[in-house]
Amino acid sequence: MDCVIKLPEFEGPLDLLLYLVHKNEMDIFEIPLSSITDQFLDYVEACLAEGRRLNPEFLFMASVLIHLKSRLLIDTPSEEETQETQSEITTPLIGYLSFKEAASRLNSLEVLFRDVFPRRPGNSIEEIVVGIERELEVDLARLTQAFRALVKRGPTEKITISPPKWTVREKFEELRSKERVRLRELASISSCIEEFLVYFMALLELVFQGIGRITESGDEVEVL
């Protein structure tokens, strides 16, 4: 339930009232604060009586309005200052409200698998068609996932710590000379996790520099 405020000059949800104040379409001095507070308390009681959860946004908006008005009453500021105080308090809230609006607009779009449906996915087209591979949107979470999965599968021998045997630069050049490589291949040619890690870092460097391109087909990552 939206709490609807009824005033001589206004009837509607509180967020609308706040919006109008922000837009200067209603004068904050004209708003009978005690009436809003009363209606607000009635709303709170009604919510509690029905065992409903209080809408925290409402609470927030009511307090913003009260804060706004009390500040203006105490300071008896100039027109300009009034304006300033008003927007100082309401601007962030209006920002927030507009994102709420944006969210509901997104939700009213034709959402996939709710309102509209594509053909049922069978085999991924990449598995069947040669020549079109979907470019992976480089995503740290997925790359880390892929790395972890391969480490699990990778070499299990004990690691002895010794001066670095491999450098990112060296692996970078090696990968660069290749036209295409599978992440899985890198794991299998690596003698230990360290080497694989260096490969992986070189790979990221390639992509970072825009030389490499990562594509996905199934669960595999490829470098072109």
């Binding site: 944006a102 969210a103 607009r105 997104l106 939700n107 959402v111 996939l112 698998f113 709710r114």
Partner: peptide, 12 residues
Amino acid sequence: YRLSEAALETLA
């Protein structure tokens, strides 16, 4: 497809 209101707002 379902997203909570909070998730939808954050997404927006």
